[in-house]
């Protein structure tokens, strides 16, 4: 099946001259949860706003469910639901009225049963006739999701769904997102919480300075996470790694004061016991041992801090 979203060579420069997106290419498969990760100002919201028509499109093409967002904007936008980052609601409306309004705005015939189901799914049914300004922050956030779902979109954008949200509510949000995916909705969420991406996503994209610098399956990233390093501090520095230890692919560090062994932490046999035995065999004595694990956070920080 064709991807639900296909972004080709998209660039965007604001009138101020700010180069917000630089040649972004990305395809989103149907039914996946994709997390777009990046520091503030990296271009996450710009990318979403461009796809949804909130800002003017730049260069390149974007197809939503095969429809060009510029030429065939009606069909493209009908498939999209957007939950922006800011809590912007009509304070004097009721949840029932505002969700029904959103549905109409997207050209769908009235369907009270569907609106009812949406409000119930998001635990807002009891509040359906309450003025929005009297709802709590968490309820408003859920209401914005309900509005975005009111026209039964296939693709849902969640821009920073847990920004300014407490731990309890964040977990609730994750449950909602999983429920949506189970119902067949493709979800793209932006976040700067790595934990959120780890928790939710099937695939992760990292964006920085307007460039999509990495797109990878989460499991592949976890495999990278699984890679651990054993650092062996030596009593006497060595010039070269002995031939007998070649199989371990050891790296010399600190001018030979230490050796670094990289291994798969998830494997049943790490090879550490054999390595230590072989070290003794080769007559290398050591003062200390310690292991380190690179986290997604390290990878992320490393990637986004890398000079352009």
């Amino acid at each position: 099946m064709s991807p639900i979203l296909s972004i080709s060579n998209v660039s965007k420069t604001y009138r101020s001259g700010h180069h917000a997106l630089k040649n972004v290419n990305l395809e989103i498969e149907r039914g996946e949860i994709f997390a777009l990760l990046g520091p503030n100002g990296a271009g996450k919201t710009t990318l979403i706003s461009l796809i949804c028509g909130i800002i003017k499109s730049g260069e390149g093409t974007v197809l939503v469910d095969g429809h060009d967002i510029a030429r065939d904007y009606r069909a493209a936008r009908e498939s999209i639901g957007l939950v922006p980052q800011e809590l912007t609601t009509d304070a004097f409306e009721t949840p029932w009225a505002t969700v029904s309004f959103s549905r109409g705005l997207f050209g769908k015939p009235p369907n009270p049963a569907f609106v009812e189901k949406t409000l119930k799914d998001l635990s807002l049914w009891e509040k359906k006739d309450t003025k929005i300004r009297n709802l709590s922050g968490g309820m408003k956030r859920r209401l914005m999701i309900a509005k975005a779902l009111s026209h039964e979109p296939q693709l849902l954008f969640l821009d920073e769904p847990s920004a300014g949200v407490d731990v309890e509510l964040r977990k609730q949000m994750w449950e909602i997102v999983r429920g949506l995916r189970a119902s067949g909705v493709t979800i793209i969420l932006t976040t700067h919480y790595i934990q959120e991406a780890e928790e939710m996503a099937d695939r992760i994209g990292i964006i920085n300075h307007g460039e999509l610098i990495l797109v990878e399956e989460k499991t592949a990233l976890i495999r990278k996470l699984g890679k651990k390093q054993l650092r062996i501090e030596l009593n006497d520095p060595i010039e070269t790694v002995p031939e007998s230890l070649a199989a371990y692919r050891l790296e010399r560090a600190q001018n030979g004061d230490a050796l670094i062994y990289t291994y798969d932490g998830t494997a049943t046999r790490t090879g550490i016991t054999a390595l230590l035995a072989d070290l003794a065999q080769a007559g290398i004595s050591f003062a200390d041992l310690h292991t380190t694990q690179s986290s997604l956070e390290d990878i992320f920080v490393d990637l986004v801090r890398r000079p352009k």
């Binding site: 909130i54 009606r74 069909a75 957007l82 922006p84 800011e86 912007t88 009509d90 705005l105």
Partner: peptide, 13 residues
Amino acid sequence: FTGTIYEILSAPI
């Protein structure tokens, strides 16, 4: 002013 214009701009309208 409130920001709810996002919905109008992103609608198929």
